[in-house]
């Protein structure tokens, strides 16, 4: 299960000739690296977001069927993508932390969860805003919306479990196991919700499928997706820095930080 310390050191020396990944895996070095790169990600997010919104609001044509209301998809679709993708990334880091007992990966998983939940919430909210003018109701039990709601529950469960455990090691490992179980279940849940939806032919309107998508719409969506990527990376790194400080607050290097500004 766990990588014995000795083998870890052997791997470390073997890799010394190439890029030394373990150097960056130490919380201390990662802390300063993340500190330097966070502003870059935020800046990119702002720039890409401005471009994407400009395309979305001014360049992309009005949809023949849905009018102006469709423009919410420039937020809705990227957040929905991120919400699903982040869960997988979170489970990946959590699993690495569980298997190799690397503290930083567990901290990454913990840092990703709130951003993922936030993206899920945004996707649901914008979905509801989009649904009101289109279907005349805030909520329909559409397969995608329902799966997204369940995904939000999974995020909240992960965060609640970690919050309830005081011992960091147990919180990391218990959360990791839950995330892995969740990631195995997500396809099953998605498949069953799809099945359920096709059986109950009430609300079978699909939310993201528009008949033909203009090229500019597609571009706008892609740029917005990139902007959300940058935002999520930036937010995660900011949070991971806070977690590192909290967990290592008794370490010498954190005490030394108090004297210096950064």
């Amino acid at each position: 299960m766990r990588m014995p310390r000795r083998r870890m050191q052997a791997t470390r020396s073997r890799m010394a000739g190439r890029i030394n990944w373990f150097y960056y895996a130490a919380p201390q070095t990662f802390y300063s690296l993340a500190g330097k790169s966070t502003p870059v990600f935020y800046a990119l997010a702002a720039i890409l977001g401005a471009i994407g919104l400009y395309i979305g609001f001014f360049v992309a044509p009005t949809d023949a069927q849905q009018g102006e209301g469709y423009r919410i998809i420039f937020i809705h679709v990227p957040t929905a993508w991120m919400s699903m993708f982040l869960y997988v990334v979170m489970a990946f880091w959590a699993a690495i932390g569980l298997a190799f007992n690397t503290r930083l990966s567990s901290m990454m998983a913990q840092a990703i969860a709130p951003t993922g939940a936030w993206m899920t919430f945004l996707a649901l909210w914008t979905g509801a805003l989009w649904g009101k003018p289109m279907w005349g109701t805030w909520w329909v039990w559409d397969a995608r919306l329902t799966s997204e709601l369940i995904l939000l529950f999974l995020y909240l469960g992960f965060m609640a479990l970690q919050a309830a455990i005081d011992e960091p090691r147990r919180a990391d490992r218990a959360g990791a196991l839950l995330a892995i179980v969740g990631v195995v279940n997500v396809p099953i849940i998605y498949f069953s919700v799809q099945w359920w939806n096709t059986l109950h032919q009430g609300a079978s309107v699909s939310i993201t499928r528009s008949p033909t998508m203009a090229t500019t719409m597609l571009w706008g969506m892609l740029v917005m997706a990139l902007a959300f990527w940058m935002y999520c990376i930036g937010a995660t790194l900011t949070r991971v820095r806070a977690i590192i400080l909290e967990r290592e607050r008794h370490a010498d290097w954190v005490r030394d930080l108090k004297g210096s500004p950064q």
Binding site: I150, A160, V181, G182, N185, F191, W195, W196
Partner: peptide
Amino acid sequence: SLLVLPLYIPVLIF
């Protein structure tokens, strides 16, 4: 209940 109920959904549906 928060952890387990979402995972129960497929069983409920089928």
